[in-house]
């Protein structure tokens, strides 16, 4: 989970706790009780919309947590002394480094998926024009596989490269 998501989640949890505390003390303090009763008496269509919005937000957070949890750990290997776990972020950094010197790549997005004992990689690439794409892709695949296998000793399965877009520095005018 990224730090921003964590921060957002922390704020959300704090708000929920504050609301729960308010509800917990409401029966014992007349001011809090009056506020609550006032709110209950004003229930309308907008309250339903607000509650539905809260349900949707909760659903999104839950799906994100479960989705991210699945790919959180990264690659693990067992040694005689214990376990070695290389996080996905670390692997992504290594892949970025291995692609650093390849000419023709402007930007990449990396997705990782562990399959049994191998790591499968999907690279979405933004490439510069005037480069032979099949050659570029082959170079990317070789570089990533060679680098990860030598530095991290991670067995690499597939390295799929998807050329997402071609970067253009100039915009053409239609006259």
């Amino acid at each position: 989970m990224k730090n921003f998501t964590k921060f957002f989640l922390c704020i959300y949890i704090i708000v929920v706790i504050a609301l729960a505390l308010f509800l917990a003390i409401a029966p014992f303090y007349s001011v809090a009780k009056n506020i609550l009763l006032l709110l209950v008496n004003r229930l309308d269509f907008y309250t339903s919309v607000f509650c539905f919005f809260i349900v949707v937000v909760n659903g999104i957070i839950l799906i994100n947590i479960l989705k991210r949890e699945k790919f959180r750990l990264g690659v693990s290997k067992y040694t005689s002394e214990g376990e070695l776990i290389i996080s996905n972020d670390a692997i992504k950094s290594l892949i970025l480094k291995s692609l650093k010197d390849i000419k023709g790549l402007k930007d990449v997005k990396i997705l990782l998926k562990t399959d049994k004992d191998k790591l499968n990689i999907l690279i979405k690439a933004l490439v510069y024009p005037d480069h032979n794409i099949p050659n570029l892709v082959l170079e990317v695949q070789r570089s990533v596989k060679r680098y990860l296998e030598s530095i991290a000793e991670i067995p690499v399965g597939e390295v799929k490269v998807m050329v997402d877009e071609i970067a253009s520095s100039t915009k053409f005018k239609v006259e």
Binding site: G74, G82, E83, L84, I85, I86, S87, D89, A90, S93, L94, L96, K97, L99, K100, I102, L105, K106, D107
Partner: peptide, 17 residues
């Protein structure tokens, strides 16, 4: 158990492409 959480680079790799 060793958990490698990141790599320390001198420069950001994305900027260097």
């Amino acid at each position: 158990n060793v958990h490698v959480q990141g790599i320390n680079f001198q420069k950001e790799p994305k900027e260097d492409m």
